[in-house]
């Protein structure tokens, strides 16, 4: 399995590769796009601070990466693109593939995927997690459009993953989330723009409204327990969505969503790439994330195992109570 690391500067490339990164993904924020659309209409799901800011830097990043046998993938992962944006997108695709040399595009909008493949048949497409690919038929749909890799959404069911991969076979590659940010809702079915800042999902007060007094619930729940339930929910949000306030854990390891305990299972079912989230993350967090995934992958491949994958992951993390809570797990 390859470690797919986020990157937003050429300066991060060599240290991340030295730490174990096998692949990179990045965004691009060309000045021309900003000049035309301003700061509130994005080209991909992240703003300039999370992106490479020029074709020149992208080209250099690809050069350095390829020298180290590391591939670079570029996000074009807005949920959709407008008719008037198609010519700009196609022109950008030409530039990043033919001139900068990127290895694949990460896209979810089926219309733009089809258009890119018709215009540039050789361009490799990875079907983004924004495609909400939760079943084998959806994976087949994206394969029929020309995608060569399926990126499953967060919190995929391991059993379902096994069935989907088994059905679709080895012609496709499969990528899953392994570390860092969570999402309360289905990213591919969220109609809120990150361009207006912050998540829309983690800051509500909740008032319970009884709407059906005519029927009896099959599950007896004490209404008074709702307050406690919301307290639990906010704890889950704090751990999984807010990454415990963004502070690093012991030994500088990132806190927040994690799938390390499931690594061996992911390998067994045929996952080929492990995505670390956080293009905009501080550089030390990226390095620490790559290193811990690498350490556990090496352990899985070693013949002398004294600990299970899960034991090693939790020992390395040193976050016993968080791990025990289950609230930090992508796969549970």
């Amino acid at each position: 399995m390859k470690i797919l690391a986020p990157i937003n500067s050429i300066h991060e490339a060599e240290p991340l590769i030295a730490s174990g990164a096998d692949e990179f993904y990045c965004g691009l924020h060309p000045k021309a796009w900003e000049n035309k659309y301003g700061k509130k209409v994005w080209l991909n799901r992240r703003w300039s601070s999370a992106s490479i800011n020029s074709f020149e830097e992208l080209k250099n990043l690809v050069k350095v990466s390829h020298r180290n046998n590391v591939k670079v993938f570029l996000t074009l992962n807005l949920p959709f693109y407008l008719p008037e944006q198609y010519p700009e997108i196609l022109s950008l695709v030409k530039e990043v593939t033919e001139n900068c040399g990127i290895d694949a595009l990460i896209v979810s909008d089926p219309g733009i995927i089809m258009t890119i493949k018709e215009t540039f048949p050789k361009v490799e497409i990875h079907a983004s997690s924004l495609g909400a690919i939760l079943n084998s038929s959806s994976a087949s749909f994206y394969q029929s459009l020309g995608a060569s890799r399926i990126i499953f959404p967060r919190f995929a069911d391991l059993e379902d993953l096994g069935i989907i991969i088994n059905k679709l076979g080895t012609k496709l590659k499969y990528e899953v989330f392994i570390l860092n940010d969570g999402c309360v809702f289905e990213e591919g079915h969220c109609y809120v723009s990150h361009a207006f800042g912050g998540a829309f999902c983690s800051r509500w007060n909740y008032e319970l409204v009884e709407i059906n007094k005519d029927e009896e619930s099959p599950y007896k729940i004490d209404k008074a327990s709702f307050k406690r339930h919301i307290k639990d929910y906010k704890e889950w949000l704090w751990i999984g969505i807010k990454n415990c306030g963004g502070v690093p854990g012991p030994k500088g390891l990132p806190l927040g969503m994690c799938g390390l305990c499931a690594l061996e299972k992911l390998k067994d079912i045929g996952v080929s790439s492990l995505k670390i989230v956080g293009r905009e993350s501080p550089f030390p967090k990226k390095i620490a994330s790559v290193k811990i995934v690498k350490k556990i992958l090496d352990h899985i491949d070693s013949s002398n195992k004294k600990l299970t994958t899960s034991q090693l992951a939790q020992n390395l993390r040193r976050t016993k109570s968080l791990c025990k809570s289950n609230f930090m797990c992508y796969y549970r």
């Binding site: 800051r203 319970l208 029927e215 599950y219």
Partner: peptide
């Protein structure tokens, strides 16, 4: 077991309650 996206269990409370949301 709470807040699992993959949970197969559902207590179907959406038939009996909705939530009014207020932005903090």
């Amino acid at each position: 077991d709470k807040f699992k996206a993959t949970s197969k269990f559902c207590s179907q409370q959406c038939r009996f309650y909705s939530l009014n949301l207020y932005d903090q």
